[in-house]
Nucleic acid binder design. Sequence first.
DNA 1: TACATACTTAGGAGATTCCCTAAGTATGTA
DNA 2: TACATACTTAGGGAATCTCCTAAGTATGTA
Lengths: 116, 116
Amino acid sequence: MHSTSSAQPQIDQIFRALSDPTRRDVVERLSAGQASVSELAAPYAMALPSFVEHLRVLEGCGLVTSQKQGRVRTYSLAPQQLKLAEDWLGRQRKLWEGRLDRLDAYLLKLKKEKRQ
Amino acid sequence: MHSTSSAQPQIDQIFRALSDPTRRDVVERLSAGQASVSELAAPYAMALPSFVEHLRVLEGCGLVTSQKQGRVRTYSLAPQQLKLAEDWLGRQRKLWEGRLDRLDAYLLKLKKEKRQ
DNA sequence: TACATACTTAGGAGATTCCCTAAGTATGTA
DNA sequence: TACATACTTAGGGAATCTCCTAAGTATGTA
């Protein structure tokens, strides 16, 4: 159907997950090291089930992992998925910069031809 | 309320916009150069008003710009906003890598101390 | 002027999101 | 055993999203 067809549910979900400030905060917090549900939830006014749903979204797209020990569930960052999003953005930047380079080259050529 | 407080509506909207495969396709297409609404819409089965709504979302968060000449509206990429998202991801990667480095250093120190 | 083209506006249906309260289960502690 | 702690499950409500159809406006063309 499309020319480029970048319909990857995984990337969809990763960008979607990162579009919420609470979830971005959690990712940032976990960059500093693992933490339990209550530790992660503490800074937020939100009801716990609401907050836990954010954690579920993050785990659902593989941005974080968790394991339960006794009654405490501990979350950690899983940075490979972050890389997926970063790679997509990097690819766009390269395309864009490549286009600028070609435009530069073209303008330079025009200028040269004019001079002759 | 939060420790890190990354509640930036702009970044929210950018990640939100990029979470849809049609909109990511459009960004990719525009990386190759500007295009009109009908050119952009051509590959999709979607009704035109639905597709145009995607363009409105992209323009709303500054990822693309448009101008109308006669009856044709032409869209271009505005790559500065892409950089916002890329920067956020890059920052997370640095935090994460920094943490790994500190962990390495710590393990190395442990190993040394054990040897004495 | 008549007709085609390129959007644009209006309104609506169904799914999803993001929050809530109330009540439950499993685990550690006195 | 009684109680507190740390989630977990169930269900619901308002707002937003992503698509649709139908009809409108503005511009170029014969």
